[in-house]
């Protein structure tokens, strides 16, 4: 995810590190990797878990094994159940690695839970607020009193939506503004939609609709074609009209002058 090269040990770690006696096997380099911060204003395990789940659901690939910093600048309670916090993050494949801006007493507890300690975020402009076109709504800067938005995501670098599990009958998955990539099969009775392209690295048995906002350049790719329906920018074909030569084969579907084309992917 980060564009960083080499060993990434933050300068803070440097101070306490001892010089290796013989052949150095590590090299210390200052590194500036963009980090995602989960900024907490309060911590209630169930709510936190639900909100984190919702964030992860928006961009599962972005979060996979993502190291995050727990931002505590706005957290005012005297205590925090770090064990639960780390556990819930882990359950969502998010790795809490450090706290930032914690009070002295919380820093001690965090340290005991194996978390690194980072200094307070200096100024707002030091935060990396990168919103890619894929992030349809920017994260709110201030949680409003009536809103339960306790988990704020500061960095979002996600363009495509990647799904790692099968899409089952009765389920629907939609990638707004981007591509949808499914690393599993799509069952009959399931529906997948994207504003961009659709890739299915499994068997496509359900319905796939690419370019749903009218992008005629969108395409559908699948490892094995067995779709109930495919559509690009509203032009669709149902299973019985799909050329039999492509059934069960790797295939792409694209629009050429108002007609849907099916092409076997054979290299």
């Amino acid at each position: 995810m980060s564009s960083d090269t080499g060993t990434t040990i933050a300068p803070e770690a440097h101070k306490s590190a001892e010089n290796p006696p013989v052949q150095p096997s590590i090299k210390l380099k200052a590194s500036l990797a963009p980090m995602t911060a989960l900024e907490l204003t309060s911590f209630e395990p169930k709510q936190f878990s639900e909100e984190l789940a919702a964030k992860v659901a928006q961009a599962p690939s972005f979060f996979e094994n993502l190291p995050v910093v727990i931002g505590l600048e706005k957290y005012e309670e005297p205590s925090l159940d770090f064990e639960r916090l780390i556990e819930i993050c882990q359950a969502h494949q998010v790795k809490a690695i450090a706290v930032r801006g914690a009070s002295a007493s919380l820093q001690d507890v965090a340290r005991n839970h194996g978390l690194g300690i980072l200094a307070k975020q200096k100024e707002r402009n030091a935060a990396i607020d990168t919103d890619t076109p894929a992030a349809s709504e920017p994260a709110p800067q201030e949680p409003k009193a009536d809103e339960p938005a306790k988990v704020e995501i500061k960095t979002e670098t996600q363009i495509s939506k990647i799904v790692h599990h099968p899409i089952r009958s009765g389920q629907q998955v939609y990638a707004a503004d981007g591509d949808l990539i499914i690393l599993a099969s799509v069952s009959a009775g399931a529906e997948i939609l994207a504003d961009g392209n659709i890739h299915v690295y499994g068997t496509l048995r359900g319905r796939a609709l690419a370019g749903v906002k009218g992008n005629t350049k969108a395409r559908i790719f699948c490892q094995s074609m067995a779709a109930e329906l495919v559509s690009v920018a509203g032009q669709y074909k149902i299973s019985e009209d799909i050329p039999s030569s492509t059934i069960g084969k790797p295939c792409q579907v694209y629009l050429d002058e108002q007609t849907l084309n099916f092409q076997k992917l054979e290299l």
């Binding site: 969502h92 099968p166 009765g170 389920q171 069952s187 399931a190």
Partner: peptide
């Protein structure tokens, strides 16, 4: 069965907790 698997993944307590 496929349908039930989808429900297990979306409407069970574990699913709601991200597990």
């Amino acid at each position: 069965s496929d349908r039930i698997l989808g429900i297990l993944q979306s409407k069970s307590r574990r699913a709601e907790n991200g597990e």
